[in-house]
Simulated scan of single mutants.
Amino acid sequence: MSAPTMPVATARAEQPEPPKVRPDLRTATRRPRRRRRLVLVGLALALVAAFAVRVLLGDYTFTIPDFFRILFGEQIPVSTFILMETKLPRAVLAVLVGLAFGAAGSLFQMLLRNPLASPDIVGVSLGASAAGIFALLTLGLRDGAVSLFAVIGAVLISGVVRWVAGTTGGYRLVLVGVGVAAAMVSVVQYLLARSNTWDVQLALRWLVGSLNNVPWSTIGLLAVALLVLLPTLAVMARSLEALELGADAAAGLGTGRHRTDALLLVGVLLTAVGVAAAGPVAFVAFMAGPIARALMGGRHSLLAGALVGAVLMLLADHTAAYLVPDVVLPVGIVTGAVGGPFLLWLLARGAATGRTG
């Protein structure tokens, strides 16, 4: 007698169904992308608004039609000079320098996995400053030659910091950078102490970081440099996610130390060209990364950091121009006044939460 057979329909009904993707999981994966797009669009709009405020408002205001008429070549007495020789160059330079510093600061913090690892802190900006001051005070150079020395100084100092720090990077590189920065401060102070009063005033104005009286030729050179460096960074940044996991994990994924050094070199050059154009504007590179990361919900973004840097520069320059009546302050005074407390807050927050980087 044969055993009873189970109907085919019943056997199929008793087989477990394949797991289905939960709708909430699919939504959770889309959420960061949506937030990223919204933040980037918001930052772009904030940049446009800050640029408009810097150019159109102030002691001498412009209407939007007048702005475009002057921009396309119409000559309006007084208005054309104020816009084309004062307001517009400062606003354009603020955007370019802010993009350079913001991208560089975010890049340093991503690569070294440390919110303190900005060009301001690890000595790159001060290396450029020391070289520029040496060219200005000792060699008697001006304008483009000083800018070239600043770029060379930033590259040399970053090479020294990287060599002394060795292959470990991270906190060791930050500590070495802080030590080298202290040495560069001593060099700058020595050069200032042995110079005459007039040259010292020129040097101090450049050291603080200022957008005053920067010619269109310098702005054009900075724009050309950024047209090369920023796309290069965008292409190379595809490996940043692997590098953020650490040196060993990055090496296992096929991304070695040479890629880290190449990215750091791009960050150094971005810092150097920004310092060469406007001086070492304090704390913009340092503040842009953490602010962008907070807006992105804890995720790093070079583009967000660059946009935040540009917005910070525009707002700081507008404040510097109109904070004190009849006095145009260097923009570095405003960023330094804001960046110092921001650094203390970041340190206190890290100590309170038990995080070190």
Rank of each mutant, 00 (worst) to 15 (best):
S301R: 00
P280Y: 07
L139H: 07
A247Q: 14
L116M: 15
L191I: 04
M236D: 05
W345I: 13
L229A: 13
L173P: 00
V268R: 11
D326H: 12
P89R: 05
T29E: 15
L270V: 06
T10F: 06
L312R: 09
V327P: 05
M184H: 03
M84T: 15
I133Y: 06
L175G: 01
R37S: 13
H318N: 14
L211H: 10
N114S: 04
A262E: 11
D317Q: 05
A104K: 07
L211K: 09
A91L: 07
A91W: 05
G332C: 11
T63Y: 01
I291N: 05
A292N: 05
V275A: 04
T356L: 15
L344W: 10
P89L: 02
S158D: 14
L295S: 03
L136Y: 06
V200L: 12
A165M: 08
T5P: 01
A250W: 11
L202P: 00
G354R: 04
V41R: 12
A9C: 00
A44C: 14
T168H: 07
V146D: 06
G256W: 01
G179E: 00
L253H: 11
L314Y: 04
R113A: 14
A135Q: 06
T353K: 13
F108H: 12
G123I: 11
L111M: 04
S2W: 03
V324W: 06
R69E: 15
V311H: 05
A242W: 03
L141R: 12
L221R: 15
G350S: 15
V328N: 12
V164C: 07
D59V: 12
L173E: 02
L192H: 11
T335E: 09
L240Q: 00
L314P: 00
